[in-house]
């Protein structure tokens, strides 16, 4: 699972109001190369939650993103490279996503988070 997917996903337990961002518990991270697409990154920048991305990247061992970012930084190749790497090239392969409100653990196996709920959570 890429951090871009993580950046969209909220805890889905009934009654939870602050389900975003899910905390990450890491067992294994893999890196997969993809071509850098500057136009895509520029259009994604306004849609993603930067703080959540920085935090998620750090929790899987990548701390090259600045704490704060603004659109002017998208002119820098160096910034785009880091943003691209964090958003699209790092994958949480094994581990878990943790609901920030309840602490409920959603396991991630072979890169696939299991967000199925128990009967009493729906």
């Amino acid at each position: 699972m890429r951090l871009l997917t993580h950046n969209m996903l909220s805890s889905n337990i009934k009654g939870v109001t602050n389900g975003f961002p899910l905390r990450i518990e890491v067992e294994k991270v893999v890196e997969k190369q993809v071509d850098l697409n500057p136009d895509f990154l520029r259009s994604m920048f306004s849609k993603i939650d930067w703080k959540a991305l920085v935090h998620a990247a750090r929790s899987i061992g990548y701390s090259e993103l600045p704490d704060e970012a603004d659109p002017s930084m998208l002119d820098s190749d160096d910034f785009l490279r880091r943003f691209h790497h964090a958003l699209l090239q790092l994958h949480l392969e094994e581990g878990a996503l943790i609901c920030p409100e309840t602490g409920r653990r959603f396991p991630v196996n072979k890169g696939i988070p299991n967000m199925l709920l128990h009967e009493d959570e729906v």
Binding site: M8, S11, N12, V122
Partner: peptide, 20 residues
């Protein structure tokens, strides 16, 4: 192909805003 998968019941999927 590099594709992300999520195991979830579509009815219980919660995303932040209009993410896709």
């Amino acid at each position: 192909l590099d594709i992300d998968y999520i195991q979830c019941d579509i009815r219980n999927l919660v995303w932040k805003g209009q993410a896709v």
